[in-house]
């Protein structure tokens, strides 16, 4: 047996789809040539700076690739140039995103000291040294308004989703359509609407008005995500519940909703993340207040307005405070999103 096997020459498996070493070396050479060219371009012309360098690279890379690959024929050349263009454009888009996060981190961290999150601006002017004052009032204000908005919009959003998926009423498709359209309402229009009703009737800016403006913006997000989640519930569950003699109300509340509890939490978090950074509606509804607020009928601070008003002062320390607020806001939004994503991943595994 062994002799026969030894006699047969087993061919080593070839994997033509794996990238060859040559390909790798070739792309490395092309890349370095374009790097040199774009460096030359950015240092000789006025389109300078780091961004100019990258944009130059985005232009040089396809050109270099084209010159190299033209000897392989038209189709191959087009394919390679297309790949390099796509890669270059991807890079051009991603660089500003990275720049946003790193700039906010670099400039924002300068505003931080041990009391930044525990003091407000009651006794501090925005231009004062950065060892005094903080963003507590803004954080508290955002939390309060987001909480009130969630208490209203989460039940309403889930109700709309139940109407579309479970009841399938006469207006189901139009509710769905208008909820989609509502998510495109400009945030400043929502603010203007609340101002024209609540603020004019009850006289002036208040935390309530800000929370209601948030509600309008949050509702469509919650409704749409809950709808997607409700659709995940298998029909067998509903059928089993009906077969046991349960009413529809009972089926929804004791079978369908508990099954997707995590999904509903996710939809609420996504709604919060959507509104937490909204500035425009609060300018018209909640305005700004320098102390930590205790009265919901008064104007209240919030992180976006804290950033906005500090930026408007033009003072160096105030601008740094604005960056500090941006860092807090960015962290809040990113954490909310990560939590929502983690929860929905757990749900889909179930």
């Amino acid at each position: 047996m062994t002799t026969i096997l030894d006699a047969v020459e087993v061919p080593t498996p070839k994997r033509p789809w794996n990238k060859k070493r040559q390909t790798f070396i070739r792309s490395a050479i092309l890349m370095s040539i374009s790097l040199v060219f774009s460096w030359l371009l950015s240092s000789t012309t006025e389109l300078g700076g780091v961004l100019g360098f990258y944009l130059g690279l985005a232009v040089c890379l396809p050109v270099v690739v084209l010159i190299e690959s033209i000897r392989h024929g038209r189709n191959v050349a087009i394919d390679r140039v297309a790949s390099s263009v796509i890669l270059a454009m991807f890079g051009v888009v991603v660089i500003p995103w990275i720049s946003i996060v790193t700039t906010v981190y670099q400039k924002g961290s300068k505003a931080f000291y041990w009391g930044y999150l525990t003091t407000d601006m009651r006794f501090t002017a925005s231009g004062e040294s950065l060892e005094f004052g903080g963003a507590l009032h803004a954080i508290v204000g955002t939390l309060v308004m987001v909480l009130i908005a969630s208490l209203i919009s989460v039940p309403l959003g889930i109700t709309a989703a139940i109407y579309i998926v479970e009841i399938k009423g006469r207006f189901a498709s139009s509710v769905r359509f208008f909820t989609q359209a509502m998510s495109g309402v400009p945030s400043i229009v929502a603010g203007l609407f609340i101002y024209s009703t609540i603020c004019i009737f009850f006289g002036g800016f208040s935390a309530w008005a800000g929370a209601l403006a948030y509600t309008i913006l949050m509702l469509p997000t919650v409704a749409r995500t809950s709808e997607e989640v409700l659709k995940l519930v298998p029909d067998e569950l509903r059928a089993a519940s009906y077969a046991l003699g349960a009413s529809q109300a009972r089926t929804v509340f004791q079978v369908v909703l508990p099954t997707i509890a995590t999904g509903l939490v996710t939809s609420a978090i996504l709604g919060i993340a959507r509104v937490a950074g909204e500035t425009a509606p609060l300018l018209l509804t909640a305005s700004y207040f320098v102390a930590t607020s205790r009265n919901l009928n008064e104007p209240i601070a919030s992180l976006p307005i804290y950033i906005f008003s500090n930026l408007g002062l033009g003072d160096a320390n105030a601008t740094t405070r604005a960056w500090g607020g941006s860092l807090v806001l960015l962290i809040v939004v990113f954490v909310l999103f990560s939590v929502a994503r983690g929860l929905s991943a757990r749900l889909s595994r179930k």
Partner: peptide, 11 residues
């Protein structure tokens, strides 16, 4: 997509 517009603005 979730980065608030005010942060885009300040950047």
């Amino acid at each position: 997509a979730a980065i608030p517009s005010v942060i885009f603005g300040i950047w």
